[in-house]
Design a protein around this nucleic acid. Structure first.
Length: 388
DNA sequence: GTGCCCTGTCATGTA
DNA sequence: TGTACATGACAGGGC
C-alpha cells in the first residue's frame, strides 16, 4: 500500500495500455473467466457454469477508469479488490502451458527444471515484463494473500496485465517464502488452485519439497507423490478450471456449453477433450472388464452346474442299469421256475434249452420251440432288430 | 529376471 | 456428424 501511494501508479494507463488480453476478458460481458472459488467447490456444475452471470456486469467492468477498482489505501478494501479482480484472471495459463510441456515430458527431469529456476540470468530476464508495473506473478500461489499489510502487489495475471509474449519473459520466477521480489512494486497473491481440494494443495508433512526450488516443481513432485492421475496433474498444470471428474461426468450439453462459454486456450480445450475421452473410456474399460469377468464367472458357474447335472445323470443311469439287471435276474429265475414245473405230454420235464416262454399280446404265455423263436428273432432282426 | 495380473490408453467398430 | 459405448490390443507398473 505504501508502495502504491509511493509510486502513484496510474492503473488506468497500466491496464488499458499494456494488458489488452485481459482487458478484453474483463470487458467482455459474458466472460466466465471470473469465478468464485468457494462457489466453484460447493455448487453443482450447472451452477458454476453460470456463475459469471450472477455478477453485476458493472462490477466486473472497470471500463476505462480502473481507479474505481483500485482500492483506496485501505487494507480491507484492497483485499476485496484483490479477490474480486485478481483471483480468476489467471494470467499464467500460457505460462503453465510452457511448464506443462516440461513437467509432462516423459523425459522430465526435475533437476533440469530446477536448474532453470536457479539460473540467475533467467531470473533476471524474467522480470522484463511488458507491463507498466513490471511485476511478476507468484505462480501457483495458494490462496489469497492473508497479509493485509503486505506492500507487495503483483498485478501480472491479476488485473489482466498479461501478454503471452511478455509472459514468456516473466515466467519461471524464483520464489521465496515471503513471495517478495525485491524489484517488484506490487505483489498480489492470488489463487491458482481453482476448485482443487485443499488437501490436494496444501503441503503436508509427508510431502517433500526441494528447498529453494519452485513451488511448481515441488507441487508437481507432490502431485506425483500423492498419485494424482496424469490427467489431474495436466489439468492442474494447465489451470483447467474443472476437475477431471467434472469434465468426465458432465453432460454433453453442459460440456459443450462450458467449452463455448469459458475462455479457454486451444491447448486447454484439447486437454479437456482428451480428459473427457480418456475418462469415458476408462469407465467403459472398467465396465467392459467387469462384464467380461461376470461372464467368465457365470460360465464357470454354468460349467459347475452342468458337471453336477452330469454326475446326477450318471447316478440315475447306474440305478437304471441296476434295476434292469435285477429284473433280468428275476425273469431268469421265473423262467427257470416255470420250466422246472412244466411237463410234456409224456410227463417228462421240458428242456429249457429246447423251448422258450413267449408272451403274446393278450397276456397268454406260450411254450415255443427255440428254433422257431430264434428263426423268428432272425426274421425280426433282419427287419430291423427292433424287438429283443 | 520373469510371468501374471491389473489398469490405463488407443484404435476401431457400432448404435 | 458427433457422441457414447464396447472391446481387442498394447504398454507399464506392481507383486
Amino acid at each position: 500500500i505504501n508502495s502504491l501511494a509511493h509510486y502513484n501508479v496510474n492503473f488506468t494507463q497500466a491496464i488499458s495500455h499494456d494488458v489488452n488480453l485481459h482487458e478484453a476478458m474483463l470487458l467482455y460481458p459474458n466472460t466466465t473467466f471470473r469465478r468464485d472459488p468457494v462457489a466453484r467447490t460447493s455448487q453443482a456444475q450447472e451452477q458454476f457454469l453460470q456463475l459469471n452471470f450472477h455478477s453485476n456486469p458493472e462490477q466486473t467492468l472497470p471500463g476505462t477508469d480502473i481507479t474505481g477498482f483500485v482500492p483506496p489505501v485501505d487494507n480491507q478494501m484492497w483485499n476485496l479488490t484483490s479477490q474480486d479482480l485478481l483471483y480468476d484472471l489467471d494470467a499464467n495459463i500460457l505460462d503453465e502451458i510452457d511448464l506443462l510441456s516440461l513437467v509432462t515430458e516423459e523425459k522430465f527431469d526435475p533437476m533440469e527444471i530446477s536448474q532453470l529456476f536457479e539460473e540467475p540470468d533467467s531470473l533476471n530476464s524474467s522480470h522484463h515484463c511488458n507491463f507498466s508495473l513490471s511485476v511478476c506473478d507468484e505462480e501457483g500461489a495458494i490462496g489469497y494473500s492473508s497479509d493485509p499489510v503486505s506492500p507487495h502487489y503483483d498485478l501480472e495475471g491479476a488485473v489482466g496485465g498479461y501478454y503471452p509474449e511478455s509472459n514468456k519473459l516473466c515466467r519461471m520466477h524464483q520464489r521465496n517464502e515471503s513471495g517478495f521480489h525485491g524489484d517488484l512494486t506490487f505483489h498480489i497473491v492470488h489463487d491458482h488452485t481453482y476448485h482443487t481440494k485443499p488437501d490436494e494443495i496444501e503441503p503436508t508433512s509427508e510431502s517433500f519439497s526441494w528447498p529453494g526450488k519452485s513451488q511448481k516443481v515441488s507441487q508437481y513432485l507432490n502431485d506425483t507423490h500423492r498419485n494424482l492421475s496424469r490427467d489431474e496433474q495436466r489439468a492442474k498444470a494447465l489451470h483447467i478450471p474443472f476437475s477431471v471428474d467434472e469434465i468426465v461426468r458432465m453432460p454433453v450439453d453442459s460440456f459443450n456449453s462450458m467449452l463455448s462459454r469459458y475462455y479457454l486456450t486451444d491447448l486447454q480445450v484439447s486437454l479437456i477433450r482428451d480428459i473427457r475421452r480418456r475418462g469415458k473410456n476408462k469407465v467403459a474399460a472398467q465396465n467392459c472388464r467387469k462384464r467380461k469377468l461376470d461372464i467368465i464367472l457365470n460360465l464357470e458357474d454354468e460349467v459347475c452346474n452342468l458337471q453336477a447335472k452330469k454326475e446326477t445323470l450318471k447316478r440315475e443311469q447306474a440305478q437304471c442299469n441296476k434295476a434292469i439287471n435285477m429284473m433280468k435276474q428275476k425273469l431268469h429265475d421265473l423262467c427257470h421256475d416255470v420250466f422246472s414245473r412244466l411237463r410234456d405230454g409224456e410227463g417228462r420235464p421240458v428242456d429249457p434249452n429246447l423251448y422258450a416262454l413267449q408272451c403274446s399280446h393278450d397276456g397268454t404265455v406260450l411254450i415255443v420251440p427255440k428254433e422257431l423263436v430264434t428263426s423268428g428273432h432272425k426274421k425280426e432282426g433282419q427287419k430291423g432288430k427292433k424287438k429283443k
